[in-house]
Design a binder for these strands. Structure first.
Length: 741
RNA sequence: GCCACCGUAGCUCAAUUGGCAGAGCAGCGGUUUUGUAAACCGCAGGUUGCGGGUUCGAGUCCCGCCGGUGGCUCCA
């Protein structure tokens, strides 16, 4: 006997070996028709699953269930894989899971699939769906399954099987068992038959490394999506189309906000006047917040000595992601290369050919420095005589990394290279270090809209969300251990404040912690303290968050605010990071109330993150229709005919003097055309001035949403705008979007 | 950086098998003096991303670069 407990609490009894499908039919034929899988004892399983003995909680998953859609998509991945295998029999299948908006299947195939192939694949898939073949599961003992896969000669499936857990492995035949139909190693579950796939589409193909490992073979990842109903697919495609219209890369240039110019360089943003205005207003908002929270503005240069970033650790750690350093002399260039080579060889190894080659180069261009470095002869500069016992020469044996690096840095004091600044923190740290600090001065909060440059990989650069030069709304807080948590909490609050002011609600909070990778610097104790402070601060905020090991910065844990763009990609915006390590690396201190030096702790934080990225997200968030206070152009005055031009000019001047960002359209177009172009430019207020307004000394106001607010006196309008701007009134774009649609 | 795809006027897109580079919008000039999402007429706009090659002939085929897009990898 099997007892089946239904969601409503009812318990039904069945003989052993009853299938889920039979149970569901007992409940009702209508339900049976709509059910594609069941959740039994918390696990989603096939309708063909048999139950025996005990009591099982069972829930039918119908087409409206999110989990059912996932099952469908997984099944559709099989249908697509079969279609591809039928068309290109050389195809080796790798891995085909459902994902958020559909599914993909990784394949290894020498023919590159192109969008033209998609139609062929879809036609074949349609045949498979039409034939309405059942998904039939069978299981083999692990060793038999492995032997079968080895025989079939697909090394990827063998690899999958080896990684799978359990004593038995399951296969799914798209057809009856033993029918010779297409089959795949698969954990399941699946829908009952291919005919249940109501609508599908092959979306795109992209490269993907096997196991995500860049050193392994690049596979083809074919993306598709599937739904139970055609209308749902159509709605999904329409939504994608709408999202593409909101894409900042399309709207930004269209609305004249920014431009990306290959002549200037990939990933380098040119902010045009309208985009710059948006940024200017955001910076204003942030400045107000910072001033009221005790931050002090600072300014630092865009370039700094390489040694600054050797000290911070950014230069060695992120070397590949930085613009190459600039050198005044070849000696400095070669010494820097030697420093890198010493760093890379590590303590275990003796000097390699790279170091020998660099020493030879040094010898050729600067015999004096070469001699000093290789023989340890007096260099004439600061090497202190009391340490003179140790030989001050470049060591070729193992175990000398620190010694060699220190030696080279000493020589680089004469003429070091410069690095385009990849981070603001080292500069802010040197401002902190420029004077003696008392515990009474702490926290010291140094803020700057600091532009940084990072050499992002060519395939990574994208619009304004991933660029090679960007401005952080950066600040660094230097505080005592005891102040740390409150400072982090204030940063979290500040970030939430600005996000909520902008009605940016759709974000998630990620707490990035360290894992066991060796990229992290500093002691375990300090990491534990920093992680505890971060965790407590975010818990205190009451926001939901996820903890993600491996997501920390190399110097400390962090809280990231992550949003999605119009096409569903996630981007980190705001960030708050606790850091015990840079103060140590730069030997920072303050004098405590015990009159002894203490080490401060740092908080790195940027509520917007990058202004480029933040503005990109805002463009998409508002679909280019910015609230009045952010709008590059707040009002356009449109004349009905030449007869009203003079008066319109007077109103225009008055508005401009009042500080409104206003434009005058007194051209020869008709009023309808002027309204259309102002509407498409997403200008919040459109002012119509014709002979009536001239006669009445009034204006007529219309919104970009098409609402006619009627006529009023110019002063009335100005006062209303002033209030709306001053309070930074920000309508929820989700609601605004509905009225414009 | 890797894999794939794409690149025609400022924008959106045409151009049969390799056979005279074209349209709409935007721009400019004129006519119209207009009342809430597109008046009319005209003009101009191009080394088809760049550089090679094949061919009698290349926007179209081949090679190399540059740029963009979608993923992968990375993201202080």
């Amino acid at each position: 006997m099997v007892k089946i407990r239904l969601p409503d609490g009812k318990v039904l009894e069945f003989p052993d070996g009853i299938t889920a499908a039979e149970v569901v039919s007992t409940i009702g034929p209508g339900l049976a028709r709509k059910t594609v899988a069941v959740r039994a004892a918390g696990q989603v399983v096939d309708l063909a699953t048999r139950f025996s003995a005990g009591e099982i909680a069972l829930q039918a998953l119908t087409e409206s269930d999110a989990d059912a859609l996932t099952v469908l998509r997984h099944s559709c991945a099989h249908v697509m894989a079969e279609a591809i295998c039928a068309l290109w029999p050389r195809t080796k299948l790798v891995y085909g899971p459902p994902v958020e908006n559909g599914y993909y299947y990784d394949i290894d195939l020498d023919h590159n699939l192109t969008p033209e192939d998609f139609a062929k694949i879809e036609a074949k898939m349609q045949e498979i769906v039409k034939s309405d073949r059942p998904f039939t599961r069978y299981e083999l003992p692990r060793s038999d399954a492995l032997a079968k896969l080895e025989r079939e000669g697909n090394e990827y499936k063998v690899d999958n099987a080896q990684r799978a857990e359990g004593d038995t492995l399951s296969f799914y035949v798209t057809g009856a068992a033993g029918s010779g139909c297409w089959e795949d190693l698969c954990r399941g579950p699946h829908i009952p038959s291919t005919g249940r796939v109501g609508a599908f589409k092959v979306m795109q193909v992209a490269g993907a490394y096997h196991h995500g490992d860049a050193s392994r073979k690049m596979l083809q990842r074919v993306y598709g999506t599937a739904f139970f109903k055609k209308a749902e697919l159509q709605a999904h495609l329409t939504q994608l189309e709408e999202a593409r219209k909101r894409d900042h890369r399309r709207l930004g240039p269209e609305l004249g906000l920014f431009t990306l110019d290959p002549l200037v360089g990939s990933g380098l943003v040119l902010w045009k006047p309208r985009g710059a205005r948006e940024r200017f207003e955001l910076e204003g908002l942030m400045r107000e917040q910072l001033m009221s929270r005790g931050y002090q503005p600072v300014y630092t240069p865009h370039i700094g000595r390489l040694d600054l970033y050797r000290t911070s650790g950014h230069f060695p750690y992120y070397r590949d992601a930085q613009f190459p350093p600039l050198f005044e002399t070849d000696t400095a260039r070669i010494l820097n290369e030697l420093w890198i080579a010493a760093y890379e060889r590590g303590d275990e190894n003796p000097a390699g050919p790279r170091e020998m080659q660099l020493l030879e180069e040094l010898k050729a261009i600067d015999a004096r420095t070469y001699a000093v470095i290789t023989t340890g002869a007096a260099s004439g500069n600061a090497s202190s005589p009391d340490k003179g016992e140790a030989r001050r020469k470049y060591e070729l044996g193992p175990g000398c990394t620190a010694h060699n690096q220190a030696l080279i840095r000493e020589h680089l004091r004469e003429a070091d290279g410069f690095l385009l600044k990849p981070m603001n923190c080292p500069m802010h740290i040197r401002i902190y270090a420029s004077e003696a600090r008392s515990y009474r001065d702490l926290p010291v909060r140094l803020a700057e809209f600091g532009t940084v440059y990072r050499y992002e990989k060519s395939g990574e650069v994208s619009g304004m969300t991933r660029v090679r030069g960007f401005t952080q709304d950066d600040a660094h807080i230097f505080c005592t251990q005891g102040q740390l948590q409150a400072e982090i909490a204030d940063c979290v609050e500040l970030t939430c404040n600005v996000l909520s002011l902008l009605k940016l609600k759709d974000f998630r909070v990620r707490v990035g912690l360290r894992d066991d990778a060796d990229k992290y610097v500093g002691s375990r104790e300090n990491w534990a303290a920093a992680e505890a402070a971060i965790r407590r601060a975010v818990q205190a905020s009451g926001m939901p968050f996820t903890e993600e090991p491996g997501e920390a910065a190399f110097y400390g844990p962090k809280i990231d605010f992550v949003v999605r763009d119009a096409i569903g990609r996630e981007w980190q915006l705001g960030t708050v990071q606790a850091d015990y390590n840079l103060p140590e690396r730069f030997d920072l201190s303050y004098i405590g109330d015990d009159n002894r030096p203490h080490r401060p702790v740092m908080v790195h934080r940027a509520p917007f993150g990058s202004l480029e990225r933040f503005c990109a997200i805002l463009i998409e968030h508002f679909a280019g229709a910015f609230p009045l206070w952010l709008a590059p152009v707040q009002a356009v005055i449109c004349t009905v005919s030449e007869k009203s031009c003079e008066y319109a000019g007077v109103v225009f001047e008055a508005f401009r003097k009042a500080g409104l960002r206003v434009e005058l359209d007194a051209g020869g177009e008709r009023i309808g055309a002027k309204i259309r172009s102002a509407t498409m430019a997403k200008v919040p207020y459109i002012i119509v001035i014709g002979e009536q307004e001239v006669a009445g000394g009034s204006i007529n106001v219309r919104t970009r949403e098409g609402k006619q607010l009627g006529s009023c006196e110019p002063a009335q309008f100005l006062a209303a705008c002033a209030l709306e701007i001053q309070t930074r009134e920000t309508p929820d774009p989700a609601v605004a979007g509905q009225t414009t649609a």
